[in-house]
């Protein structure tokens, strides 16, 4: 009793630190305003979070600036490379992505916003990476890309920019419901020797610093992200893996059923936020 009361006091005392929080800057990309703070999606209803906030709002000014102008965004080189790959004939079917889809500006607009998406014919939940690889193996007769390799993240980036500014709109009903539920369970599980869940850092403590890191809500509307630290694009499952590793935990593999489910759930927590990938992070 005594200690429980003190816990409440400690929580109260910790609250002013939230002043750090998300900043009030406005995110525009090439002049187009993004919805980077939106009323909470239904998936956030029970969390007490009333606003979904893009990770951009938690970054330093100079990192933020790099994302606001296409010419300053280091990820755009990968987008250009992926456009070459898009048009290149590869594989036994003697086709390129363009043979079936034409120009990405038209055919891929809106695609990123609804993935992961249930594929009725295959009876599977597909992430964008899984769909790209399915096209490569089944329609091109080419080899699958490594799930979180440079070619994959570049192709994801090319497809993602075509949805820039559109609201994330991942389905959570019908066949997606079981993935949502499983992902949610993972989100709240305290993994590793440090016994930390996604929620411990990104729901309870966003806005707070954990050592030098300014915690965000862990939203994925900015993926793939260009990390200055790695000088390369980071695939969303790779980020999930890094976060579980940091709990001193045994991670799941990229592309695993666990991470597919987690991606469905985390996407839904950010429904309504603009697609702003490829974003730039420190």
């Amino acid at each position: 009793m005594k200690f429980k009361a003190l816990t409440a006091i400690a929580a109260l005392l910790a609250a002013p630190a939230f002043a750090g929080g998300a900043d009030d800057d406005v995110l525009t990309i090439d002049g187009q305003e993004m919805m980077s703070k939106v009323a909470a999606a239904p998936a956030l209803a029970e969390t007490g979070i009333d606003t979904a906030i893009s990770g951009w709002h938690f970054r330093e000014d100079d990192t933020q600036a790099m994302q606001m102008d296409t010419f300053d965004n280091p990820a755009m080189i990968a987008v250009d490379q992926a456009l070459d790959a898009w048009n290149a004939v590869e594989g036994t079917a003697d086709k390129s992505c363009a043979s079936c889809h034409g120009a990405p500006e038209e055919s891929m607009a809106g695609v990123r916003a609804v993935y992961p998406k249930w594929n009725e014919a295959a009876g599977e939940m597909r992430t964008l990476a899984m769909q790209i690889n399915t096209c490569r193996t089944e329609n091109l007769g080419a080899e699958a890309y490594k799930y979180d390799g440079a070619e994959m993240t570049a192709m994801e980036a090319l497809i993602t920019v075509q949805s820039r500014g559109m609201p994330m709109n991942v389905a959570t009903d019908g066949p997606a419901a079981e993935f949502f539920d499983k992902g949610k369970e993972i989100y709240y599980t305290r993994y590793g020797i440090l016994e930390l869940s996604c929620a411990n850092c990104h729901e309870q403590n966003y806005g707070n610093y954990i050592r030098a890191d300014h915690l965000s809500q862990g939203q994925i509307n900015g993926f793939p992200t260009y990390r200055l630290k790695n000088a390369g694009l980071v695939q969303v499952h790779n980020r999930f893996r890094g976060c579980i590793r940091d709990t001193r935990g045994e991670t799941f593999a990229v592309g695993s059923p666990e991470f597919v489910a987690l991606e469905v759930y985390v996407s839904a927590r950010g429904n309504g936020l603009s697609i702003e990938g490829p974003s730039v992070r420190q």
Partner: peptide
């Protein structure tokens, strides 16, 4: 009593 304890910060099982 840990869930998926790892081997340090390697991401591998302990």
């Amino acid at each position: 009593g840990f869930i998926r304890p790892g081997d340090g910060y390697t991401g591998k099982a302990a």
